[in-house]
Simulated assay, not measured.
Amino acid sequence: MLSDCAFRAQLAIEGQRDLFDYWLHSAGKRLLPARADLDPLKVPRLLPYLGLIDLREGFDRGLFRLAGTRLRDIYGKEITGKRLGEVFSGTCEAYWRRIHDRVATEGLPAHGVVRGPAEGRDHVLLFWLRLPLSDDGLRVDRILCHDTTGPGDRAHVPAEFTLYRYPPALPPAAQGVRPNTARAR
């Protein structure tokens, strides 16, 4: 497994590094911070890019409890109060299900880059970060999200910069795409 320092070094966006540092600091001596440990006012410039997925009713009933204003632009609709299946549907559903399931079951942060984060949003290049939260210190009950768009529009992004396209014909490992997760235990 990668150390926290190595995971942080892979984050391409300054706001994601800032949020990761805040998340680590908020955990204190515990493995994972709780939602109550986070004060959004400590990272005010990141608020438009943050989302909070609530998994307390189970993974299949997970929903975006909160979504910053920029997420509306990224996903093409208001996602606050929407279930994961409503936000991530169609050809991108399996990708996001794997990501969120892995964060929830392993309690590890994850990050990546994807073109077309939601159905009908193929023009969006998304840099995403998912950070697990746990009220009881054992079970991940929420996922803190940071989503931001990449540089320029689709016409100006080199093809080799696109790391993932839908629909996937093969599992990510067979396509040479490896999810990046890390957290030293």
Rank of each mutant, 00 (worst) to 15 (best):
W128E: 08
H146D: 09
K82W: 07
W128P: 13
V103K: 00
D141L: 11
R56H: 15
R98C: 04
L125P: 07
G62V: 14
F127K: 06
R121W: 09
A110C: 14
T105D: 11
W96M: 05
G85T: 02
G58Q: 08
G90F: 05
V140R: 05
D122H: 06
T69I: 12
G90Y: 06
L63F: 15
L71C: 04
D122S: 07
R130Y: 14
H111W: 06
A118Q: 01
E78N: 07
G116E: 02
L126T: 12
T148C: 14
G81H: 01
D141P: 12
P109S: 02
R98G: 05
C92S: 10
R72S: 12
L71G: 10
R121T: 15
G137T: 12
D153F: 14
F127Q: 14
R142F: 02
G76L: 04
I74V: 15
D73K: 04
E119G: 02
G85Q: 09
C92E: 07
D122N: 06
D60R: 09
L125M: 15
L84W: 07
I74D: 02
S89D: 08
V87G: 06
L144W: 13
C145W: 02
R97V: 13
D136T: 14
T148N: 09
R83W: 12
C145S: 12
H146G: 10
H123E: 13
D122R: 06
V114W: 03
A104P: 00
G150Y: 08
